[in-house]
Amino acid sequence: MIVAERKPIAEIMEMVGPRKKMLVVGCGACVTVCMAGGEREAEILATTLELAFRNEGKQFLWDCVERQCETEFVEPLRDKVRASAGVLSMGCGVGVQTLAAVFPESAVFPALNTHFMGRPVEQGLWAETCAGCGTCILSKTGGICPIARCSKSLLNGPCGGSVNGRCEVDPEHIECAWQLIYDRLEAWDALDLMDEIMPPKDWSTSAHGGVRRVFREDVVL
C-alpha cells in the first residue's frame, strides 16, 4: 500500500488561508488502511479545523471516495467541490493530483505527506518494501528487495556495515536487508544465488528517465 501521514495541523491551517468553506476528501484505499486519510480521518480533520477556526466561522464539509486516484471515483464530488472554496485531499499525492486534474477550477491542497510503498510490519508500524524501480529482482533475492530495504540499495551485499543482522545506518530500527536475503535463500536451499554477481542495474526504468508510463494497447477500445 501507499503509506502516508497527516501533515501538521498548523501547515494545513496555513493552506486554508482566507477560505471560508472547504471540502475535506478522504480516500478509501491505501490511506484508509494505514489510518492516515480514510473516512474516519477525514471527519476528524474537518471537525478539528472547525474547532481551530471556531471564532472565524469557517465551515469544513467532508466526504470520502472509494479510490481517490481514479477519475470515475472522484467525479461524483463535483457538486460539493463547486460549493466549496477549496479542497483538502486526504489521499496520497496521486489522489491530490487526480482531484486537481478533474476539478482544475478548484484549489486542491494536500493534507497528507505521502511517504512510500510498504506494509504494516507490526501494530502501528509501516515500513517501506518496494521502491517501484521498474525492474523487479525479487526472484533473485528471496522475495526481499535490496533496493528498498538496504540503506545503500546494494545489489551485491551485505556491506561491512552489517553487524548481527542490523544496519549500521540505524542498528536499532533497520535490519540488514542482505542478512535477511541470506537467511531466506538458505531456507529456500538456494544459497548459490548469493554467488551470482548482479550487474549494474538499469535505472532508466526508475526515476531517471522522466515521467514513467505504462501503456497497454490491448485494453484500449
Binding site: 474516519r40 471527519e43 476528524i44 471537525t47 478539528t48 472547525e50 474547532l51
Partner: peptide, 11 residues
C-alpha cells in the same frame, strides 16, 4: 469511544 466522539463533544 472514538477520537471523533471526543472532538464532536467539544465541537
Amino acid at each position: 469511544v472514538q477520537t471523533i466522539d471526543i472532538l464532536k463533544a467539544l465541537h
